[in-house]
Amino acid sequence: MGAIEEIFFNGEVIGRYWGEIVQGLMLTAEVSLLTVVLGIMGGLLLAVLKCFSNVVVDVIFAVFIDVFRTIPILVILFLVYFALPYAGLRLSPLVTTVATLSLVLTAYSAETFWVAIQAIPRGQTDAARALNIGAWSTIAFIILPQAIRLSIPLLCNRAIAITKGTALGAAVALPELLGSAQSAMSIAANPSPLTLAAGLYVLFFIPLVLLSRWLERRSTRERRA
């Protein structure tokens, strides 16, 4: 037992790298927040654009969504980081990670929002038109509030899953939580920093997982009621 403690919960090693790892956690939080905000806003924007559908918008919408939902995040990350420089576009690890994750979340949330918008009965739009409410106002004040409410439980799960992808940033040298723990682990030749990082990830994500469980349960109950 003493051996396990010294290997995985070594206080001395953890004390030495605590500062860097907490900085990594801050970076993870920053990337997560940016990803969620940009990804949800992007998705909402795309879904609204799709409401005024024309052929060009429809094709771009479909291709964008299918590409970013189908190709693994890590592959997109590597394309942005290792392939785009050949086109003269060199992005920092932070920008690369945020851009990749928020593009992927944009694709997922656009699809979810769009499906939810379609699920709102046609009669709502007709009623708004009969009351002489403009097209933009109908979408903004009648359709979207209901659609967003409908999408929240689904989106919450997806947003958490994609936000956990911040750890992939370590693969493009972003010193976020996993990256900082990995470099500490290799310098100290002891895996305690990784244990600490795993613990911090759990602390960071558990509240979100519980929140999504609660949202899911509430929406199920509403449906039954």
Partner: peptide, 22 residues
């Protein structure tokens, strides 16, 4: 909930790089 809150890459790093210490 533990499984759902640890990023899959972190899990892989623990299994591949930390368990060998044991």
């Amino acid at each position: 909930d533990l499984c759902r809150s640890i990023p899959v890459l972190v899990l892989l790093m623990i299994i591949f790089y930390a368990l060998p210490f044991l």
